[in-house]
Simulated assay, not measured.
Amino acid sequence: MAISPSYPPQPGVPAGHALRHPHWWQRRSVRYGALITLLVLSGLVILALVREQTGTEGFLVGLGLAVFPVPLLIAAFRWLDRVEPGPWRNLVFSFAWGACAAALIAIVANSFATRWIATATADPSSADTLGATVIAPVVEESAKAAAVLLVFLFRRRDFTGIVDGVVIAGVTATGFAFTENILYLGTAFGTDRLSGGSGLTSVTAATFFVRVVMS
């Protein structure tokens, strides 16, 4: 009678226990795919919302002007992390999260909260003020901070100090401001089209100076 040879158990696996394959939702490819899908869908929704408010021409103008500070800010945060730089994929995720997911969360949450306050108090003007001064900062900063938490939880080995958190937060805020700037600049361009403003005295130029140059 032939006897099958016995093989030693693999390191780290107790004897008598078979190897367990990870569930499908624990696979890295599935998680990356879900994350990319989430960011792409968020980006498409943000694109539609901003374009609806600014119009196609305003959106293109806002996009062209809003992109100016992005390379400078990314380079500045990359320089800050020059001693022990983290991988680029973390920066790409952070920027995409700020520009797409965090911006969408802020728009939806702020709109819902403002409408709820207006309905509850029957005072739309106070609801707008309360939403802009109290609700919006909490919602927006929490949505942006989620990127730092996600990178810390799932890419903890890339966190070697406080600077890593500062860089992730800064790049996320850059992405968020990028989307905001498209909306503000596109809206300002639409205002100039209606009023006939142009040049350095236009609303677009003033908005660009305040939001891009000064901020």
Rank of each mutant, 00 (worst) to 15 (best):
V50F: 03
E52C: 03
T133N: 15
Y7Q: 14
D158N: 15
Y184P: 00
R156K: 15
A99C: 12
F159D: 14
A146K: 04
H21I: 13
S125D: 11
V61D: 02
R82Q: 11
L150S: 12
L72E: 01
V213C: 02
T37L: 13
S215E: 06
R157K: 15
G86R: 14
S42G: 05
T56Y: 09
D128M: 13
T114Q: 03
A120E: 08
R20P: 08
P87A: 00
R193G: 05
I36T: 09
F59C: 05
G86N: 11
F77R: 04
T172N: 03
Q10N: 08
V108S: 14
A15H: 06
V108G: 10
F68C: 05
T174I: 06
A102D: 08
F152N: 10
E140G: 11
G131F: 00
V171Y: 12
S142R: 02
A145H: 13
I3V: 13
I3E: 07
R27S: 10
L19A: 04
S29W: 14
D123H: 11
V210D: 03
S94E: 09
L41F: 08
L194D: 10
A147I: 01
L183S: 04
T114L: 01
R211I: 00
A75D: 10
I74T: 01
G170S: 08
E84I: 08
R115D: 14
T56K: 05
S125L: 15
F68T: 06
L153Y: 11
I74S: 01
Q26K: 14
A169P: 07
T54P: 01
L49F: 08
L185G: 01
Y184L: 04
M1V: 15
G161V: 07
A96C: 12
R115Q: 10
I3S: 09
G58Y: 02
P11M: 09
G98S: 04
L41T: 08
Q10Y: 09
V163Q: 01
G16C: 03
I168Y: 01
E57S: 12
G16Q: 02
V70K: 04
R157C: 06
G186N: 00
G196D: 07
T172A: 11
G165N: 03
P5G: 10
L44Y: 06
A146C: 10
A18K: 07
S29H: 15
T201N: 14
R28T: 15
S126W: 04
F93M: 04
F152L: 15
R115C: 07
N181Y: 02
T187N: 05
S202I: 02
V139S: 01
F159G: 05
Y32H: 12
D128C: 05
L35S: 07
N90V: 15
R156L: 15
L49S: 05
G58W: 02
G33R: 01
P9L: 09
V30W: 11
G64N: 05
K144M: 06
I117W: 09
W79Y: 14
L35N: 04
A169N: 08
T114M: 02
A99G: 12
Y32A: 13
V92P: 13
W79C: 04
Y32F: 08
I107K: 13
L47I: 09
R157T: 15
R51F: 07
T37C: 07
F152A: 15
F93Q: 00
W25Y: 14
A147H: 00
